[in-house]
């Protein structure tokens, strides 16, 4: 028996050494067919059945349609004709329907990292608080054959950026694939941010090198804030329509209701002789309150978006009429 134990011990130690060594450096298991250069960040794709001479994996070679047109512009889908053909056929980029709470940065491509989006969101929400004007950033890739300025202003019209009656919204549309940018301005801000001024601002930023989209957007926003700061007193809203709404959201909590009930309980406690109810009831209320607070703390750690409770989302009924400017690099 003693002999066996010795062997078992040896095996155990050997296993331990292997496990510790593998923990320190993750050596990948070799594949069956070892290539001379092993760049593990790049997955070498499996060959297709029909191998083309040029394999450009960034671009999918499309299957030919049944009716091959002489010009194949794949950015633009030739639409099927409707049954009743109207003389004006405007095939434009379908602007997506807005979410319930519109955040200032909408990246449909995935150029900006999460941290950058968070920082930009915070910055733009601060601008809304200070200058009462909303700046929306949209990043998309495909616009068919449409004009970028045209899409941007229609975007603002559909999402209703800006306040109703004031129309103080700004839209910055970025199309990195086409190398185009456009800045559109609502009716209310047109006298302050004229077309020529917008063109100057955009020309200051362009061209964008090395995919520095975050820095350029930051620069543009800073330039806009300088001008908004000049005419600060014109934007201040004298009559707050949502005044009661804000008070309701800020000061009305379930906790306050519980406190009120507690006070009532205390009053009852002094006026009555029933001891049992008066000992149980406050305990229940306090217990509930503590639980809620704990939940809130957990949520804060997970999502940093909920830090600003005052933010109600963009889109309060603004209109756009095509003011602004665009540029390409």
């Amino acid at each position: 028996m003693k002999k066996y134990i010795k062997y078992i011990l040896y095996i155990f130690i050997f296993l331990n050494i292997i496990s510790t060594s593998s923990k320190t450096i993750d050596i990948p298991t070799p594949s069956k067919k070892i290539y001379p250069v092993n760049d593990y960040y790049y997955d070498i794709p499996t060959p297709s059945k029909k191998i083309y001479p040029v394999n450009d994996y960034y671009y999918d070679i499309p299957t030919p349609s049944k009716k091959i047109y002489p010009v194949n512009d794949y950015y633009y889908d030739i639409p099927t004709p409707s049954k009743k053909i109207y003389p004006v056929n405007d095939y434009y980029y379908d602007i997506p329907t807005p979410s319930k709470k519109i955040y200032p940065v909408n990246d449909y491509v995935g150029i900006l990292s999460k941290k950058e989006i968070l920082i930009l969101n915070k910055k733009l929400i601060q601008i809304k608080k200070n200058f009462y004007s909303e700046i929306l950033i949209v990043i998309i890739n495909n616009i068919f054959n449409d004009n970028h300025n045209w899409i941007a202003s229609n975007w603002g019209q559909k999402w209703k950026i800006g306040k109703k009656g004031k129309d103080n919204g700004i839209i910055i549309l970025l199309i990195p694939q086409r190398k185009k940018i456009s800045m559109q301005i609502g009716y209310g801000l047109e006298p302050y941010l004229t077309d020529a001024l917008c063109k100057k601002m955009i020309n200051n930023i362009l061209p964008i090198y090395n995919n520095n989209y975050y820095q350029t957007l930051n620069k543009l926003i800073d330039n806009i804030t300088i001008i908004l700061n000049k005419y600060k007193y014109n934007f201040q809203s004298k009559s707050n329509i949502n005044f009661f709404k804000k008070i309701y959201k800020k000061y009305f909590n379930i906790n306050y209701l519980i406190l009120l009930l507690l006070i009532i309980n205390i009053i009852i406690y002094y006026n009555s002789d029933n001891v049992l109810i008066n000992t149980i009831l406050p305990y229940i209320f306090f217990y509930k309150k503590n639980n809620e607070n704990n939940d809130d703390n957990d949520d804060d750690n997970e999502d940093n978006d909920d830090d600003n409770d005052d933010f109600e989302g963009f889109g309060e009924g603004g209109h756009f009429g095509g003011g602004g400017a665009g540029g390409s690099w």
């Binding site: 004009n147 045209w150 202003s153 077309d195 063109k199 095509g322």
Partner: peptide, 18 residues
């Protein structure tokens, strides 16, 4: 002239939208 060019671009965009 550059200012005027940008204004012309803006007006064309406005005409398109309206």
């Amino acid at each position: 002239f550059l200012e005027l060019q940008s204004q012309l671009e803006g007006t064309e965009n406005r005409i398109n939208i309206e």
